[in-house]
């Protein structure tokens, strides 16, 4: 390097980020190994169960108040989304039928392609 070349600025934040990225896999593995311990995985499993039940109870409990406020519940939004999903399915069936009908007479490439010379499958 010549004397006239500017010295790159040292960026401690960038160096810290590089250090974190380089070590992440090892730390993640250590955390995953910790989660494999019986008591830890059991506690985590119970937390998940509790969260599922709490959310279920919460959504049931909110149905009445939401109706009183004339607001849609999560179930109402999900039901609407599912109706849209069924409409999308119907449109897709029509699109597929039309594509197949229009494609019937189209010229297709010959199915005669060969692998490069010397490349053969084992017998």
């Amino acid at each position: 390097m010549s004397e006239s070349d500017p010295k790159p600025d040292f960026d401690p934040a960038r160096a810290w980020r590089d250090w974190f990225v380089q070590n992440e896999r090892g730390w993640s593995e250590a955390m995953a190994n910790f989660m494999k311990k019986d008591d830890v995985s059991q506690a985590m499993g119970k937390e998940i169960n509790a969260a599922v039940l709490a959310q279920h109870m919460m959504s049931q409990g909110m149905t009445g108040p939401m109706a009183m406020m004339n607001m849609p519940t999560r179930e109402d939004v999900v039901a609407l989304s599912e109706r849209i999903g069924r409409l999308e399915d119907a449109v897709a069936r029509i699109e597929a039928a039309l594509t197949t009908a229009l494609d019937a007479g189209a010229t297709k490439p010959a199915r005669t392609r060969k692998p490069p010379r010397g490349k053969r499958a084992p017998e």
């Binding site: 069936r93 699109e95 597929a96 197949t100 494609d103 490439p109 392609r113």
Partner: peptide
């Protein structure tokens, strides 16, 4: 690509070939 079949949520697509000939 083209949608060639749909059933419930399933979609089957065919990608348009990009070579003059294709493998069988």
């Amino acid at each position: 690509k083209q949608l060639i079949y749909a059933r419930d949520t399933l979609r089957l697509y065919h990608y348009l070939p990009q070579a003059d000939t294709v493998f069988r």
